[in-house]
Design a protein around this nucleic acid. Structure first.
Length: 403
DNA sequence: AATGGAATCAACCGCGTGCGC
DNA sequence: GGCGCACGCGGTTGATTCCAT
């Protein structure tokens, strides 16, 4: 037996919605609430499929929709969540208040995916090029066609923001707080495959020129306060997530102040001072990608004698060599507090609220079943409440979940 | 000014899933 | 357990917009 059509298609209007239809739909939903989409068109006097009404409402008429261009922060959220979640647009949309899955999907398809592909270096390419990533945006400029309305507006607003002295994207001068933390690059799900390294993914992320706007970024979280508190434990326990090195161990949390609104902050410890977390764009802007595919940069700590050199190889392995300041006596705890995140260094819970993630169970978490065999770089090594020691807490979470 | 072509995005379509009977 | 229905999601389409020539 074939599937019944969602609604009677005969005599129903298709195509663009008129203002009159919008008014009818809006008034009806305001009076009767959402739902019952099948019967809604008839009751509201709209010659549309219920499905079409639902889509129109969700994607266009809802009052809480954010209009306008995607901010650079939103872009990064999308890019990184997509790297994590794949084409789960509705899930991604749940992290972007006022944005719909359709909008994000369109934006991805029209803007972001193209950017990424523009920057992906063929793995077989052996051309010995040392890339100055600040210049690659110029290379990636598309050949023709019109500029998007958004990009045109962005160009205008960028110059305005610059003039008004708003937040700069330059790390050394970055005075903005509450920035979203960089997201992990993780195996993709579903149809997408991660054909490039995280380095390459990160390469795409700073194509907005030199004046990326930096503003407070609050990302909604579907998690509830009670759940999060239960997951994360007391504030003292959360404090304990600060590692020996002084690097901040990120935890998704729903501060009670935001929980009422159903939002959380997708940043460690409610806000991340820019001095503690580098934008990976900025990192890449100022560093060099080696011909071998390795990315090497040197990080200066708060004192000039405190140097940490990172080399992220094309094979996704990172080595970190430290030269702590002499007066620290080599104590790692005095080393620089800046944390850089790399391919194998992400903490999943930074990205997705645990409740969200864990609902996905093994499908979402299977790739996390890896032993932690290196130390430092923000990796938690503690015995958790369930006795899982020396492993990434996500692994412990998985073990608990599937036990 | 006309036109081709690329970009954008609203909307459509089919499928999967959950739920009630 | 099977069936039908409603809903939600993601892929795709096509109308529209606007830049480049």
């Amino acid at each position: 037996m074939g599937r019944a059509p969602c609604c009677e298609k005969v005599g129903l209007k298709k195509g663009r919605w008129t203002a009159e239809e919008d008014v009818l739909l809006t008034k009806y939903i305001q009076a009767n609430g959402e739902g019952s989409w099948r019967s809604l068109p008839k009751n509201a006097g709209i010659l549309r499929c219920g499905k079409s009404c639902r889509l129109r409402w969700i994607n266009y008429l809802r009052a809480d929709l954010k209009r306008g261009n995607f901010t650079s922060q939103e872009e990064e959220v999308i890019i990184n969540l997509h790297a994590t979640l794949g084409n789960r647009w509705s899930l991604i949309a749940s992290y972007l208040p006022g944005r719909t899955d359709n909008e994000i999907k369109n934006y991805w398809n029209s803007h972001l995916s193209r950017k990424i592909h523009s920057f992906r270096r063929p793995l077989t390419q052996s051309m010995p090029v040392i890339m100055d990533l600040t210049k690659t945006a110029v290379i990636a400029k598309r050949k023709g066609g019109r500029n998007s309305k958004g990009s045109m507006k962005e160009i205008k607003s960028r110059s305005t923001a610059k003039d008004t002295g708003s937040c700069s994207n330059k790390p050394a001068e970055n005075v903005c707080v509450n920035e979203v933390v960089p997201f992990p690059s993780t195996p993709l799900l579903e149809k997408e495959t991660l054909s490039t390294t995280a380095i390459e993914d990160r390469m795409v992320l700073d194509q907005h020129g030199e004046d990326k706007e930096r503003t407070t970024h609050v990302v909604p979280s579907p998690c509830q306060d009670t759940v999060v508190e239960g997951m994360l434990g007391s504030s003292e326990e959360r404090e304990s997530l600060v590692s020996e090195e002084g690097t901040i161990e990120n935890s998704m949390q729903c501060p009670s102040g935001n929980a009422e609104k159903g939002t959380g902050i997708l940043a460690p410890h409610e806000s991340i001072d820019s001095s503690e977390t580098e934008w990976f764009n900025d990192i890449l802007d100022s560093e060099l990608l080696q011909p071998s595919g390795d990315l090497t940069f040197t990080e200066l700590g708060e004192d000039s004698g405190n140097v940490k050199t990172h080399t992220t190889a094309a094979n996704n392995e990172e080595t970190v060599s430290r030269n702590c300041s002499a007066d620290s006596g080599g104590d790692l705890s005095s080393c620089t507090s800046t944390t850089f995140y790399f391919v194998d260094d992400w903490e999943w819970e930074n990205v997705v609220p645990r409740s969200e993630l864990w609902d996905e169970k093994e499908y979402m978490c299977s790739w996390l079943w890896e032993p932690s065999d290196y130390h430092g770089k923000g990796e938690r090594h503690k015995v958790d409440d369930n006795g899982f020691e020396g492993h990434n807490p996500m692994i412990a979470a998985n073990a608990l979940l599937f036990s």
